[in-house]
């Protein structure tokens, strides 16, 4: 019993990583916000929290897939922006929506192939992609504006956002903990983290194909987040996805997922997303300037990763 609790607390000897501690801190923070910050208790604000959390949750889930295999995707924010820009084009929804997902899939495919076939480091591959997409987005939509298809607007209104949340959690669970694919991601990441890149493939795991698939899914998740955001802001915005890379990586890292790969959990990522959302919400209510907020976010990522156990999977 005591041993189990100690393991829970330290995340030691577990593939799920350190998630219990962030959960505790998150709950304490939530209580503090409830009691100490005036605007927070407001039911409307609490509902807003959910809609604020959904894009980050979607992007974070995708990000987690590639982090599990020891990768990283810095292009997710740009995919989100590009998605809203495409949706703001002058065309019917039944053309734009499939286009969005085709484009996202293609972006993930290019990322994945560059990393697995051309051996480009994930940071460089996806950083290049980030810049390329930013350019394309600004060509399509130089400033925020445009009209979003009606169907997108309707699908994110009011109570429907809870449905998005449930769907995101279910798909995330299915991918990460409920399928062979998820187990294979852990296996590939475990090999990478233990400095034995090809271990999983020795067991007959299609490692390259699964890594490529992880990047495709990551971009696709980001596109879904883009659709959701476009519906919320009712227009396209070439800058809406800025910093989502960092936010998603931070959320995943807070949730106990090791950035070296092979260790992490869905509930950890959800906890991380909730914490990031609470933090942003609390800082907004407390009138912390946006500039200071980025300083705080950056520092959190640095500290969290520094605190992550450097010992490889021995844990």
């Amino acid at each position: 019993m005591i041993v189990t609790f100690r393991r829970l607390l330290t995340g030691q000897d577990s593939r799920q990583g350190l998630w219990f501690l962030p959960l505790t801190i998150g709950c304490l923070g939530f209580l503090w916000l409830l009691i100490g910050v005036d605007g927070f208790r407001n039911p409307q604000n609490l509902l807003n929290l959910i809609t604020q959390a959904i894009p980050l949750l979607l992007v974070g889930l995708g990000q987690m897939l590639v982090i599990l295999v020891g990768g990283l995707d810095l292009s997710v924010g740009s995919v989100v922006s590009l998605t809203t820009a495409i949706l703001a084009l002058d065309a019917p929804g039944y053309v734009l929506l499939p286009t969005v997902f085709l484009v996202a899939g293609l972006i993930g495919l290019i990322n994945g192939l560059a990393i697995t076939r051309l051996n480009v480091h994930p940071i460089i591959a996806t950083l290049s992609m980030q810049i390329i997409l930013r350019g394309i987005t600004l060509i399509l939509l130089p400033t925020a504006g445009g009209v979003i298809p009606e169907i997108v607007k309707q699908s994110v209104s009011g109570r429907l956002s809870v449905l998005w949340l449930a769907a995101a959690v279910f798909v995330g669970w299915k991918l990460i903990h409920g399928s062979r694919f998820g187990l294979h991601l852990f296996a590939i990441g475990g090999g990478v983290a233990a400095d034995r890149q090809d271990t999983a493939s020795k067991y007959g795991v299609a490692d390259r194909r699964n890594v490529v698939l992880a990047y495709v899914l990551c971009s696709t998740f980001a596109a879904v987040a883009g659709v959701f955001l476009a519906g919320r802001i009712v227009s396209g915005d070439p800058n809406v996805g800025l910093l989502l890379e960092i936010d998603s990586i931070t959320a995943v890292a807070i949730g106990g997922t090791q950035l070296t790969g092979g260790v992490g959990s869905l509930h950890g990522t959800i906890i991380g997303v909730v914490m990031m959302t609470l933090l942003a919400n609390g800082m907004n209510l407390g009138n912390v300037s946006a500039f200071v907020q980025t300083i705080i976010k950056g520092s959190i990522l640095l500290v969290i990763v520094a605190l992550q156990s450097r010992k490889k999977i021995g844990l």
Binding site: R15, L183, F186, A187, G191, A193, A194, T199, G262
Partner: peptide
């Protein structure tokens, strides 16, 4: 793979 259980390693 150190991060998988014995059973998962056996049937990976």
């Amino acid at each position: 793979l150190p991060n998988l259980s014995i059973a998962e390693n056996m049937y990976l």
